[in-house]
Design a protein around this nucleic acid. Structure first.
Length: 273
DNA sequence: GCATTACCCTGAAAGC
DNA sequence: TGCTTTCAGGGTAATG
């Protein structure tokens, strides 16, 4: 389940191998992902060179020359694999990007919730998927002063708020659970009930959880691996996610699990208020 | 305008 | 053993 730390890990890996490469050809499986891949997608990439690799929320954004952007979203089960040598494609490979130096990039996604698209625009904000994203939680703009008024306006529960990519871009279910545990806030709390002090704890928890995960190259259960096929190590740092029934690391009370908007929330009812 | 729900998808695990 | 059902969740369209 790739979230922001996993995409950041992938972006860092890909920068070291893809910058300067020219796309020679694109082969697609023909199956739709989250939405059908645009017929013009291969033509928009072909002949262009990768100049920059960025991350916006959970999106990988590859800046191309001549002027265009290639965006990749991994959905739930998407994987990007880089190959320097020829070889067979694995099952559920939906796109293979061949470069002019005979290396290639594979996009695999067995659930097909991901997204591949290209836009011939001048600025990154002209990409609709990117333009609608909320603030990056690791940007200097993200602070209590920014967050508190937004929380006060919202009647949503705080867990749903954290998962809304149009507000804060990058958190998914795993890290939202971990953030709320660290901030000692119950996932069901309505946003407008959070105090300024709790908002400060929330801001710090978001930054701390994400930075820790990035340092450990993301969280791997069964899905995530980087472009070399290596899993991350942050699963060893998780304190509540998928720990139902186990003891809370702070107070020893059993971790509980509940359904919130079709997603599982893991929390400690003793520590989190 | 905002919040909530249903849906897409497939492999793994659980249940029978 | 083998079949069927349930569950997982990111993003979004539909609904309230």
């Amino acid at each position: 389940m790739p979230e922001m730390p996993e995409i950041e890990t992938l972006a860092r890996k890909l920068r070291s191998v893809l910058i300067g490469k020219r796309v020679a050809g694109v082969r697609l499986s023909g199956l739709p992902l989250r939405r059908p891949i645009d017929d013009q997608f291969p033509a928009k990439l072909r002949g262009r060179t990768i100049r920059q690799i960025l991350r916006r929320g959970k999106y990988l954004v590859l800046k191309l020359e001549p002027q265009a952007f290639w965006i990749i979203h991994l959905g739930m089960s998407g994987k990007i694999l880089y190959h320097a040598a020829a070889g067979e494609c694995a099952n559920h490979t939906h796109a293979v990007f061949h470069f002019s130096d005979s290396t290639r990039l594979e996009y695999r996604d067995f659930r097909r919730f991901g997204l591949l698209a290209a836009y011939e625009v001048r600025r990154i904000n002209e990409i609709p998927e990117i333009n609608s994203l909320g603030i990056d939680p690791l940007s200097p703009m993200f602070c209590r002063k920014w967050l508190f008024p937004l929380l006060q306006k919202s009647r949503q529960d705080v867990k749903s708020f954290l998962l809304d990519q149009h507000k804060i871009a990058g958190l998914g279910n795993i890290y939202a659970c971990e953030v709320l545990f660290l901030a000692r806030i119950k996932p069901t709390r309505r946003c407008y009930t959070l105090t300024p002090l709790e908002t400060v704890r929330l801001v710090h928890a978001i930054r701390d959880v994400l930075r820790l995960a990035i340092r450990h190259r993301g969280t791997s259960f069964s899905d995530f691996m980087d472009s070399d096929g290596n899993p991350g190590e942050n699963q060893n740092n998780l304190r509540v996610f998928q720990r139902e029934g186990k003891n809370c690391v702070r107070c020893r009370a059993p971790i509980q699990r509940m359904k919130q908007g079709n997603r599982s929330s893991f929390f400690c009812s003793h520590c989190q208020r």
